[in-house]
Amino acid sequence: MTQSSMPELARKPSAGFDLKLWGPFLALAGLIVLGTLVNPVFLSPANLANVLTRTAFTGIIAVGATFVITTGGIDLSVGSLAAFTAGVMIVVMNALVGPMGAGWPVVLVGMLVAVGLGLVAGLVNGLLVTKGRIEAFIVTLGTMGIFRSLVTYLADGGTLSLNSGMRAVYRPVYYGGLFGIPTPVWVFAAVALIGAVILYRTRFGRYCAAIGSNDEVARYSAIDVDRVRLLAFVLQGLCVAIAVVLYVPRLGSASATTGVLWELEAIAAVIIGGTMLKGGHGRIWGTVVGAVMLTLIDNILNLTGAISVYLNGAIQGAIIIVAVLLQRGTASKR
């Protein structure tokens, strides 16, 4: 990240700091002030824990999306994939309760199934994009419909519910925590940290940015463009699987409405965070902030009665646009 933002700093030394880099953090600080003004309860540890825990699902998915978008791709199938993976996970665990009894081994098998499915789905998306030579938008629009239908089919149009004995065993994964911080928040932090290391400190991460910037130049530089793109999709699939492993113990169910619009939330988080939709620039910590901001907006609107509920969507939209405007405003002046 420092490497890529260096030329910008050099070009406008008078600016003091890079608004493009710090924009998301400023917007987040603004939202926190707003939330506190709206209702002092906002800053209570319980509320903050709620917000961060909720962010974990879309946040983890958004970390994966940062890679895909940095390479110049897009993945619209993540919400549907999350629902489908959750559905399969529940079906498998319910089937295993009989022979294996309700306990941690069943949960572990369920988790492995989720991770396996996520990896395979990412691989399918990636192969269709790289080997099939189809635009990522179309491939993932297709798989989005496929996964959504599959979970509806699996659930007979209704809801798949986890066996109640299993729920009791699995519940702490969402509701438990360490040092007063809920497990999903720890996992979210770990995923973001690993994501940041991969994107900023490894060859693969630099290749992602290079390909998103100009894939022809990357190809001439002897980068295996297809392999990197494929890996980015596989990474995205893995992130979806991790999110699902945390999601299932929350309500113990999956249905056709699970994960609806998560793909847009994830993409919005990535863009608010300063990653370019056309690729070439990835910012993991920006993505994390973007994801937190999206949940905060909902939370703040729920904590106040001052704004008509009919206008919730308008407020959300306005805040998203302002947040991105904050960082792009200076970028365009260059």
Binding site: N39, V41, N47, S253, S255, N302
Partner: peptide, 16 residues
């Protein structure tokens, strides 16, 4: 009419 939204909205009502 959604479980996840019901959970989230209620959490916030409980804080408020």
């Amino acid at each position: 009419w959604n479980r996840d939204d019901g959970y989230k909205v209620m959490q916030d009502f409980l804080s408020r």
